[in-house]
C-alpha cells in the first residue's frame, strides 16, 4: 500500500495522462459525470454517485462497428469499433465497479464480444471507498462492501483526509503504480490506523442506511409464480415507459444494432436500448411485449430472477440512481419489497 497527497493531484492527473487517456468524475452545470479529463475541467471526487453510471466508458452509448461504401459494383467495408488507447478510469465507486463484472458475465462469455473485450482490456479501473454513502444507497443488499476493494478493480483507494491511500489489486494496477513512481509516499502506521477507523465508520454508516434492510432473497418463489404475480399489475401502472432507469443504471446492458443509411455509404452502429421502450426487440411480427406491464416486468425479472438464474448473482448493485431519477418514483426497491411479500 502507498499513499499520495491531495496537493499532488494535479501532478497525478498529468502523470497518468502521459501514458493513458484519463477519465474522471467531472462536474459540469452542477452534474457530475465520468468524462475524458481536460486541464480546465472541474474534478469532483466527493460526489458519491455520478449522475449516470460510468458504464458508458466500458460500453459506449453508441459505437460504430463498421463503415461501408459502394462504388459502382464494388463494396468496401471498414472495421472501426473497439478501443485502441490505454485508459485509466479513476474514482469508480465499488457498486459501479461490481457492475462492470456483471456486464463482463454477459459480454465476455462465448461468443465473446470482441469490441467490448478490447475496451475492458485497455482500461485500468481505479476505485474509491465511499466515505459518505447516501440515503438512496443499498449496495449492502447485494453483498457489496463500499469500504473494501471489490473483485476486478485494478487499484483501490481510500480518502483519509489530506492523502489518499492507494493499493494495487491486479497486474494492471501494479503497472500503473510503477509508472507513477515517486509521486507516492510509503504509508505510516498512523495511516493504517486511520484506514481501520475509516473502514469501521463506513461500515457503521452503511448498516444504518434507511434501505439497508432491502433483501432481494425474499423473492424466492417459483419463476412461473413470480412471473404471474398480481403485483406486476399494481406496480407497473404508473410507469411512463421512458428509459431513465435503464440509461442511468450501471448494470443494464441491452443494446440494438442499427444502420445509418447514407445512400451509397453508411455506418453500422451499436446503441443502448431499453426493454422499457415499445420498439425493444421488435421483430417482423411486431413487439413480443405489447403492454407496459410486460416491459416493466421484463426489466425487473431480468435483474432479480433471470440473470441470477444464469449467473448466480443479482443484476443490481444498489447504487440507487433509479430511485432518484424515475419521474414517477417507481424503482427496484419498491419492486423488491412488493415481490418479496411486503404490503
Amino acid at each position: 500500500m502507498k499513499k499520495v497527497a491531495k496537493n499532488k493531484f494535479s501532478q497525478l492527473w498529468n502523470s497518468i495522462n502521459k501514458d493513458y487517456e484519463l477519465f474522471l468524475p467531472i462536474e459540469k452545470d452542477g452534474k457530475v459525470n465520468f468524462s475524458l479529463w481536460k486541464d480546465e475541467d472541474k474534478i469532483n471526487l466527493d460526489a458519491i454517485k455520478t449522475n449516470v453510471s460510468p458504464k458508458n466508458i466500458i460500453f459506449p452509448q453508441s459505437e460504430t462497428y463498421l463503415k461501408f461504401k459502394t462504388d459502382g459494383k464494388k463494396l468496401s467495408l471498414e472495421n472501426v469499433g473497439g478501443k485502441k488507447e490505454e485508459y485509466v478510469l479513476f474514482g469508480v465507486r465499488p457498486c459501479d465497479a461490481v457492475s462492470f463484472n456483471l456486464i463482463d458475465n454477459v459480454f465476455l462469455r462465448e461468443p465473446i464480444d470482441r469490441f467490448y473485450e478490447e475496451r475492458r482490456n485497455k482500461g485500468t479501473v481505479v476505485s474509491m471507498a465511499c466515505l459518505e454513502p447516501e440515503e438512496t444507497c443499498f449496495c449492502s443488499s447485494f453483498g457489496i462492501e463500499p469500504e473494501t476493494a471489490p473483485k476486478g478493480v485494478d487499484v483501490f483507494t481510500w480518502d483519509i483526509g489530506q492523502t489518499i491511500l492507494w493499493e494495487a489489486q491486479t497486474e494492471k494496477g501494479n503497472i500503473l503504480t510503477e509508472k507513477l513512481g515517486d509521486i507516492f509516499e510509503e504509508v505510516t502506521e498512523q495511516d493504517i490506523n486511520e484506514l481501520e477507523k475509516l473502514k469501521h465508520s463506513i461500515k457503521d454508516k452503511v448498516s444504518s442506511l434507511p434501505l439497508s434492510d432491502v433483501d432481494p432473497k425474499k423473492i424466492d418463489g417459483d419463476l412461473k409464480d413470480i412471473f404471474e404475480s398480481e403485483v406486476w399489475d399494481e406496480i407497473s401502472k404508473s410507469c411512463l415507459g421512458c428509459g431513465s432507469c435503464t440509461y442511468v443504471c450501471p448494470t443494464c446492458h441491452c443494446y440494438d444494432i442499427q444502420d445509418f443509411d447514407g445512400g451509397k455509404c453508411g455506418e453500422r452502429f451499436r446503441c443502448w436500448d431499453s426493454c422499457m421502450f415499445s420498439d425493444f426487440t421488435r421483430m417482423a411480427h411486431g413487439n413480443p411485449r405489447t403492454s407496459q406491464k410486460e416491459r416493466f416486468r421484463q426489466r425487473f425479472m431480468h435483474k432479480l430472477v433471470y440473470y441470477p438464474n444464469n449467473h448466480q448473482v443479482y443484476a443490481c448493485v444498489g447504487c440507487g440512481r433509479c430511485i432518484e431519477k424515475c419521474p414517477v418514483n417507481m424503482n427496484i426497491v419498491k419492486v423488491i419489497k412488493k415481490l418479496g411479500g411486503e404490503k
Binding site: 449516470v52 452509448q61 411512463l240 415507459g241 421512458c242 428509459g243 431513465s244 435503464t246 440509461y247 442511468v248 443502448w272 431499453s274 421502450f277 415499445s278 420498439d279 419521474p327
Partner: peptide, 21 residues
C-alpha cells in the same frame, strides 16, 4: 441520454405512436 423521459411525461406529447418510435 435519449431516455425519452421528457416526451413521455409531457401532456402535450400524446401521439398514439411517436414518430421516433
Amino acid at each position: 441520454i435519449r431516455c425519452n423521459a421528457c416526451r413521455n411525461i409531457c401532456p402535450a406529447c400524446s401521439c398514439e405512436t411517436c414518430v421516433f418510435d
